[in-house]
Amino acid sequence: MSSSLRELLNNPQLADQLLSEAQTRGFVVAMAAAPHLINPTEWLAFLWGGEENSPFASQEELEAYANEIVNLWNESREALLSGIWQWPEGCALDDKELVTAKTREFSEGLLQGWQLARDDWETVMPEDSEDNALLGGVLLCFSLLYDPENAMEALSQEGADGLAQFEEIFASVPNMLSGLTLRAYSLVEGA
């Protein structure tokens, strides 16, 4: 994430109106992973709650923000399609909370973004297809990372070593998300 985008997201006048840095990253990654390219004009407003009017003081500030978001989308899309996407800085496991706040917020943003592309995903990977299992697995991982306490409880009830399973889930997310993006891309391009 560029320093100018980080500055905008940390601006006290905008902080309460925009998604946090980690939520923004998650949302943008969801848009970058989507099977069909969705024009940022269709989803940019969701980064400030979907309001018609942006929270920015000037058109220039809005344009600077939009350009930085598009740059982040481009970087994310390239990393996903190249299979080199990694968790953003600050996203990690945590001894006390299971995951860091940034991991939880990133997961929340990604799940919010997924909702916008949901119809595309369900069209490309219908419920009765093998590909839908991959999609479901990725969404389940992010749901578990968003709500780790309930995830640990569910894993323990299944008799699994919750912590070890949780570490595996976290470690597998980059490969799974890149794999999902690549599979969706091949399905759309091959159609």
Rank of each mutant, 00 (worst) to 15 (best):
E122I: 08
P88D: 01
A160P: 00
V124H: 07
T103V: 10
L135R: 13
G136E: 13
D119W: 08
L110W: 13
F170E: 02
F166V: 08
A133R: 11
D120R: 07
L135H: 11
W87G: 12
C91Y: 01
A171M: 02
V99L: 05
K102Q: 15
D128W: 07
M125R: 04
N150Q: 11
W114K: 05
G162C: 01
Q112S: 11
L134Q: 14
A171C: 00
S107E: 00
R118S: 15
L135C: 10
Q115H: 14
D120E: 14
L116T: 09
G136R: 09
K96S: 15
R118T: 08
D119Q: 14
Q115E: 09
G83R: 02
I169W: 04
A164W: 05
G137C: 07
D161R: 02
N150L: 01
T123W: 05
N132I: 01
D161C: 00
E167D: 13
R104P: 02
A133K: 14
D147E: 15
A164Q: 07
G90C: 05
L134A: 13
D131K: 10
D95C: 03
V99Y: 05
F142G: 02
E158F: 01
K96V: 15
L116A: 11
G137R: 12
E108G: 00
L155C: 07
A117R: 03
L110C: 02
D128I: 07
A92S: 15
G137I: 04
L98Q: 10
V173L: 10
Q115K: 13
D94Y: 06
Q115A: 13
E127F: 04
T103A: 13
E167V: 15
L116S: 09
D119H: 11
T123A: 13
T100C: 03
E167Y: 07
S156V: 04
E130F: 09
P88V: 01
T103E: 04
A171P: 02
P174N: 01
N150H: 06
N132S: 09
D95W: 04
D95H: 05
V173H: 08
P174E: 00
Q115V: 12
M125N: 06
G90A: 02
E158M: 10
L140F: 11
I169N: 08
E97P: 00
R104C: 06
D94W: 06
L98P: 01
S129L: 00
D120C: 14
W121G: 12
L139W: 08
P174R: 00
Q86I: 04
E149T: 09
L140R: 10
K96A: 15
D95G: 09
A154E: 12
V173M: 04
D120H: 15
L144C: 12
V99D: 07
E168I: 08
F106D: 03
E158Q: 13
A164F: 07
A92T: 11
D131W: 11
V173C: 10
S82R: 12
E153S: 10
D128K: 07
V99Q: 03
S129F: 06
Q112I: 04
C141F: 01
D94R: 03
D120N: 15
L116E: 04
L93K: 01
A164L: 05
K96F: 12
S107Q: 06
K102T: 13
K102H: 14
